[in-house]
Simulated scan of single mutants.
Amino acid sequence: MNTRILRALLLTFCLAFLPLSAAQADTLDINTATADQLSSVMVGVGPAKAQAIVDYRDSNGPFGSIDELSSVKGIGPATVDKNRDFISVTPASAK
């Protein structure tokens, strides 16, 4: 195969997958996000559930893991799983 064609194919392949890797790098930290940010980023989380997340965090301290979100009333494991690619947790000691 012509090297020019191979280079074009390689460039096309790299550019096609660049948005996927960039999107995964930008996640919302549930330990610092506002209710508005949570409801705009998380799937299946509206304003009321987002406020419940913030209230839980304010009452119980920062989340230790993403899975701990399921301790918030109205947030189940399915909702947590749907949002794993959009959220992150920065431990309190790393801030």
Rank of each mutant, 00 (worst) to 15 (best):
residue 71 S to P: 05
residue 37 Q to I: 12
residue 57 R to Q: 11
residue 10 L to N: 15
residue 15 L to R: 10
residue 12 T to D: 06
residue 14 C to V: 12
residue 12 T to L: 05
residue 94 A to S: 03
residue 71 S to N: 09
residue 55 D to N: 11
residue 80 V to H: 03
residue 28 L to F: 00
residue 59 S to D: 09
residue 84 R to G: 06
residue 29 D to S: 02
residue 78 A to V: 14
residue 1 M to P: 12
residue 2 N to T: 14
residue 2 N to H: 13
residue 78 A to N: 15
residue 38 L to M: 03
residue 7 R to L: 11
residue 88 S to D: 03
residue 29 D to C: 00
residue 59 S to N: 07
residue 22 A to N: 09
residue 33 A to Y: 01
residue 38 L to E: 00
residue 14 C to G: 05
residue 25 A to F: 11
residue 19 P to T: 13
residue 55 D to V: 10
residue 37 Q to G: 10
residue 29 D to L: 00
residue 90 T to E: 05
residue 91 P to G: 06
residue 30 I to H: 01
residue 73 K to P: 15
residue 83 N to P: 05
residue 65 S to L: 05
residue 12 T to N: 03
residue 60 N to L: 08
residue 56 Y to H: 04
residue 95 K to S: 04
residue 19 P to D: 09
residue 58 D to L: 02
residue 89 V to H: 00
residue 74 G to Y: 02
residue 83 N to M: 01
residue 49 K to M: 13
residue 16 A to L: 09
residue 39 S to D: 13
residue 76 G to R: 04
residue 80 V to C: 07
residue 57 R to C: 04
residue 44 G to Q: 14
residue 67 D to S: 11
residue 17 F to A: 13
residue 25 A to I: 10
residue 18 L to E: 08
residue 76 G to P: 02
residue 50 A to S: 06
residue 72 V to L: 02
residue 16 A to R: 12
residue 31 N to K: 08
residue 57 R to S: 05
residue 66 I to G: 06
residue 77 P to R: 13
residue 74 G to W: 01
residue 53 I to M: 09
residue 12 T to H: 05
residue 55 D to T: 14
residue 36 D to P: 10
residue 42 M to G: 08
residue 36 D to G: 13
residue 41 V to Q: 11
residue 28 L to H: 01
residue 29 D to I: 00
residue 15 L to W: 08
residue 43 V to K: 12
residue 9 L to V: 14
residue 59 S to Y: 12
residue 73 K to S: 14
residue 43 V to E: 08
residue 63 F to A: 01
residue 35 A to L: 04
residue 24 Q to Y: 03
residue 29 D to T: 02
residue 71 S to A: 09
residue 54 V to L: 11
residue 19 P to A: 10
residue 50 A to E: 10
residue 49 K to H: 13
residue 18 L to K: 12
residue 51 Q to T: 14
residue 41 V to Y: 03
residue 53 I to A: 04
residue 71 S to D: 09
residue 23 A to S: 11
residue 79 T to C: 02
residue 57 R to N: 10
residue 47 P to V: 06
residue 24 Q to S: 08
residue 11 L to T: 15
residue 82 K to E: 09
residue 92 A to T: 09
residue 2 N to W: 10
residue 84 R to Q: 14
residue 62 P to Q: 11
residue 87 I to E: 00
residue 28 L to M: 06
residue 27 T to C: 04
residue 86 F to L: 11
residue 8 A to L: 15
residue 43 V to P: 13
residue 52 A to H: 13
residue 89 V to Y: 00
residue 11 L to F: 14
